[in-house]
Computed example of a mutant assay.
Amino acid sequence: MPLQVSEYSWQQTETAVFLSLPLRGVCVRDADVFCTENYLKVNFAPFLFEVFLYAPIDDESSKAKIGNDTIVFTLHKKEAVMWEALSVSGVDKEMMQRIREKSILKAQERAKEATEAKAAARREDQKYALNVMMKIEDEEREKIVRMKENERIKATKELEAWKKHQRKAEEQNIIQREDKLHQQEKQIEEGKKLKHKSFPRNSTSRNLATKGSIQVNFTPRVFPTALRESRVAEEEEWLHKQAEAQRAMNTDIPELSDLKEEEKNPEWLKDKGNKLFATENYLAAINAYNLAIRLNTKIPLLYLNRAACHLKLKNLHKAIEDSSKALELLTPPVADNANARMKAYVRRGTAFCQLELYVEGLQDYEAALKIDPSNRIVQNDAEKIRNIIQGTEVKS
């Protein structure tokens, strides 16, 4: 049974009640204080104190201070009026029970409202945090999009500059080839004139001129067209360039002095790069081709094979650069280098398509088909690129 505490003291003003409740050994940790606008209870085992207040108070602004074996309450009145007593008089047990139950229900409702308010505030905080996070993510996404767009613009500008340079180089090559062809035609004509002047007019020819019939023997033609329209000059130029490429060795590089003799051979390095490519060790293959190119910059297959490695590693701009360099060295266009030129066009066209520059890619594939019109794989790929440009096929 709890011990009812009946000893207390209180004072009042028109707006507040000051209640002092002595409890020996009372502390914040063990004291249970329950207060509503009409009811106040303190439970500190084995002591129990309760009072049914004379008039309503503002329990939310009222305070309790615990210490020095005493609890001091400051109760703020809802109405500014002097009380006749601290507790209401004439309260029987049944009414006391109803007041207790009503106070407990009200306290539970208030606690529920407070819990819901906290949950709502927490949801608002979470919503705010989520909005902030989404805003940050949107900003990061926009930043990435801007970076990609800047990179695309930069790549497009570099590509346009490179194409302009290639056009100039191609025009220069055409002019040089036309000059060379003109010189060869001139030499052929001069040779014919010299041959005509030096032809002997002997007695046999004079006798033949006096007779009524002349027998003429023609030398059979090797080519179906005139000599100036054949590919002999270009074939000879290609063979000459290949011979020069074999001799164009650069062994004066200081850091190459410690290499073995076979490692200073570009052909040996090319074969090594090919074997590494076959095992999908593309970086090592590139290193082999790099060293070979440092030794000899005139071998087109080194650039062509390195372009294939760059394609595998998605180094697309480098693949375009190496394919173009290979095409530059694969001149003049003759039957011996036709297969290499077709590969160079296909690899450069593939790199263009992976950069989503489909028009440029299609131009290279069509150039490859001019070299090998019966290649079904190149035909199918070119048709796919045309469909992408026309919008009838999904990019892959």
Rank of each mutant, 00 (worst) to 15 (best):
L355Y: 00
N202V: 13
E189R: 01
V359C: 06
L369Y: 00
D179Q: 11
F34E: 11
K370Y: 05
I293S: 05
E235C: 00
Q126G: 05
K93S: 13
P220A: 03
L256I: 08
S257I: 10
L362D: 05
E170I: 08
A292G: 08
F44T: 04
W10P: 00
Q187R: 13
R228F: 01
W238Y: 04
F73P: 07
G212W: 12
M249N: 11
V88K: 14
F277K: 08
K93Y: 06
P200W: 04
N337W: 04
I144F: 09
K270V: 05
R341P: 02
K186V: 07
K148Q: 14
S205T: 13
E235R: 02
S324Q: 11
I293G: 04
Q97N: 10
F223Y: 02
E109S: 13
S103P: 00
L23D: 02
N305K: 09
L40P: 05
L302S: 08
F223S: 03
K192P: 09
K143T: 15
A319W: 00
H182L: 12
E140G: 10
K157Y: 10
A85V: 02
C353N: 04
Q172F: 01
K78C: 11
R247C: 15
Y289T: 08
K314Q: 06
D32I: 07
E79W: 03
T70C: 02
E190D: 04
K325E: 08
P333F: 02
K41P: 01
L302K: 07
A335S: 12
R123I: 06
V216C: 07
D32G: 09
E360S: 13
Q12H: 07
R306W: 01
R386Q: 06
N375T: 11
V132N: 15
L227H: 03
G391N: 04
G67C: 06
I175W: 09
V145D: 14
K148V: 14
A368Q: 08
S198I: 15
F199D: 14
D58V: 07
E140A: 15
Y289P: 12
Q363P: 02
V81N: 14
Q363D: 08
E79P: 00
Y303I: 11
L75V: 04
D252K: 10
A121R: 11
N131D: 10
R206M: 14
L19K: 02
D92P: 03
Q108S: 08
Q215H: 03
R231D: 12
R247T: 14
Y282E: 02
G67A: 06
R167S: 11
Q97F: 07
A64T: 09
L304Y: 09
F34I: 10
E84P: 14
R247A: 15
K370C: 06
A307G: 15
A344Y: 06
N305Q: 04
